[in-house]
Design a protein around this nucleic acid. Sequence first.
DNA 1: TTGAATTTTCAAAATATTCTGAAAGTTTTT
DNA 2: AAAAACTTTCAGAATATTTTGAAAATTCAA
Lengths: 171, 171
Amino acid sequence: MSLMELKEAKDKFIHTWGTLATQWGINRTMAQIHALLLLSSKSMNADEIMADLQISRGNVNMNLRDLMDWGLIYKQLLPGERKEYFIAEKDIWKVAKQIAKERRRREIGPLIEAMEDIKEGIQPDTAEKEEFLKIVNDISKVSVFADNTMTSLLKSDENWLINNFIKIFNK
Amino acid sequence: MSLMELKEAKDKFIHTWGTLATQWGINRTMAQIHALLLLSSKSMNADEIMADLQISRGNVNMNLRDLMDWGLIYKQLLPGERKEYFIAEKDIWKVAKQIAKERRRREIGPLIEAMEDIKEGIQPDTAEKEEFLKIVNDISKVSVFADNTMTSLLKSDENWLINNFIKIFNK
DNA sequence: TTGAATTTTCAAAATATTCTGAAAGTTTTT
DNA sequence: AAAAACTTTCAGAATATTTTGAAAATTCAA
């Protein structure tokens, strides 16, 4: 039956998204809530998410906040409703950019800081120290490079989006 | 005292490397072994690593194999020695490329496969299904794009980004 | 082939992370 | 102001991951 087929596919999507997420450092429930909201045309409240994924209120609350921190979902206040509703960013391109941005911030930033911090106390007054400093400096440079590359990619995309937008708009 | 200063900096480096690694999905011990070998001018055997990081033989063995899988360290057989020695790739640019390559393989590959797999069974014969397929297809496209971007970054050394990097790196 | 040296495996223990749910906190309605 | 509706917090429980270490497997020399 057709509706069942879609339901199954959606469940598979949510399950898969959760499994993949753990592979790349994101917690399974957070990913599943994200997937659920991605597939939902309406925004959902905490109770609906709890019922759908069979998880506790605390878990839902915490992961919704994390997803908002990541910029992947938005809070939506519906008129006449007391409850808070949540809706996912549906533009997958924006989603990917947001994830890339956050990962850059979380993964590369601290690395650059740490290397700068380690360099501080050391003078290159022996061959051994020079060798050590070379490694730290090289990691610094690679990190800064990766950071810049990410930034350029994210920026050039903005240009691309703007260009595209102008094209469509002028049509 | 100077030697102590270096020793401390090295320890800090190893510790920091391990902590950062957990932040981005890599196991702490694996990162620490990698850092230790990065800083060591000589290759090291399992016993030396055990003693240095105060960890068990099983742990060392397992993580050395993982590091070889990642292409970050090499096994070195010294003439006249029964024990296996390990040495890290010291060219940080190669290290970064290797990490990027592996992460692409581990993180993006499965995503593309999973989306293809989900698309399989669904026909776009209702509006709802079309909507669902749009999301899956968009994710597919973004993943393939990310994969291609990574690949071109890693491949062509005449790429503008890489030239940019070389400028910075050789300064 | 035997046995010593070395590496690998893996079940159990230790550690780390995630989840639960009830209590506390907040906001809104009456 | 009190009660109702809803959200947040957080200590303890559940789950998942990592580590240990001794036994099994492998390698090599004699």
